[in-house]
């Protein structure tokens, strides 16, 4: 078995919103009993609609959000408890945000932004070594020659270049895991693929594991073609398994709906596609979620048992599915 880097065990995150006078507090169960793991050198794509808790999960992984209950285990140590090598964990798990402009300090040059990260990893770096190090990181992310970028401010670079700078900054800390939250959603289509290929290259060459958070199944398939996909819905993982199995033969009704919604760039094929197999377009609010299958109100296979309580995962090959349908017989109907 590959070396397990990080694991979430029964992680719950509850946000509470202060209610109106005398009405009590509202509780939002953003993540509910999430089990997740990532091994060394693996790419896992986390896919779901907006509001499904995928960014919150990314924050829990990077330690930016403390779970309300549950364990986050990094290389065998539970980081939700006090432990001595917290700095090692913080450096080893890096986060790349969606909005590259907001993630860089606008009044610092790229040199300034990168040097903070380099010094955080190693205080002993001397001034004359600094530029050499940066040159290395920038060429790793495909920005050559470095002089063109080092003394510029974030606003002087394009979105794609800024996204690469973020990646270089993460690399400066020698991470084991990079959590990338929708890194290409604000980048032009013609350049998206190059950023995704860069992530795949870093994964291959430097053995960095990636958690790729997205709502776009097509890019998830592109980057994680050897890895896994986790499909999230209202704070729970509905289906998880190897990418190709999951996309070619999805089992969970929600995964089926998601796949049907992705348009195909070919007019002959896309116009013959069937409507999305769900009963209801509206995403339930987290507030109204009950202790049962969260997808019950949209699921085309809904039956009374779905409301009976929490659904257990069932295993089918490499895929785990949170659904109580009889998966072996369903196909024969």
């Amino acid at each position: 078995m590959a070396n397990r880097l990080l694991e979430l065990q029964k992680v719950n995150v509850v946000f509470s919103k202060r209610g109106e006078f005398m009405k009590g507090d509202h509780k939002f169960h953003v993540l509910k009993d999430v089990d997740f793991h990532i091994d060394e050198g693996e790419i896992v794509a986390v896919v779901g609609e907006s509001g499904c808790g995928k960014t919150t999960m990314g924050k829990v992984i990077t330690g930016l959000q403390a779970p309300t209950s549950g364990k986050v285990i990094f290389q065998g140590v539970d980081i939700t408890k006090a432990f001595s090598n917290k700095k090692e964990y913080r450096n080893a798990v890096q986060f790349i945000q969606q909005d590259s402009y907001a993630a860089l300090n606008p009044v610092k040059t790229i040199y300034g932004s990168l040097s903070t990260a380099i010094l955080a990893a190693n205080k002993k770096v001397k001034r004359d070594e600094m530029e050499e190090l940066m040159r290395g990181y920038l060429s790793d992310v495909g920005l050559k020659p470095a002089e063109l970028y080092l003394y510029k401010y974030p606003h002087q670079l394009s979105g794609g270049q800024r996204q690469r700078i973020l990646m270089a900054r993460a690399l400066a800390l020698n991470p084991k895991i990079i959590v990338a939250d929708e890194p290409v959603s604000m980048i032009d289509v013609s350049l998206r693929v190059s950023i995704l290929s860069l992530m795949a290259k870093l994964n291959k060459e430097k053995k960095i594991s990636f958690v790729y958070i997205t709502h776009d199944l097509a890019t998830a398939r592109f980057i994680a073609n050897q890895g896994r996909i986790s499909v999230m819905y209202l704070g729970q993982i509905m289906e998880e398994g190897p990418v190709e199995t999951l996309i070619s033969s999805p089992e969970h009704p929600y995964t089926k709906a998601l796949i049907a919604a992705v348009p195909i760039p070919d007019p002959k094929k896309s116009r013959n596609s069937k409507p999305i197999p769900i009963r209801n377009m509206k995403l339930m609010s987290l507030e109204h979620r009950k202790d049962c299958c969260p997808f019950y109100d949209r699921c085309p296979h809904f039956h009374d048992e779905c409301l009976a309580g929490d659904i257990e995962y069932q295993q089918k090959g490499d895929v785990k599915i949170k659904c109580n349908l009889d998966l072996d017989n369903e196909g024969k109907e």
Binding site: S190, R192, A218, R221, V262, K269
Partner: peptide, 10 residues
């Protein structure tokens, strides 16, 4: 190039 740069599911 635009069509080639668009990943899809198939």
């Amino acid at each position: 190039g635009l069509i080639k740069a668009t990943p899809s599911l198939i």
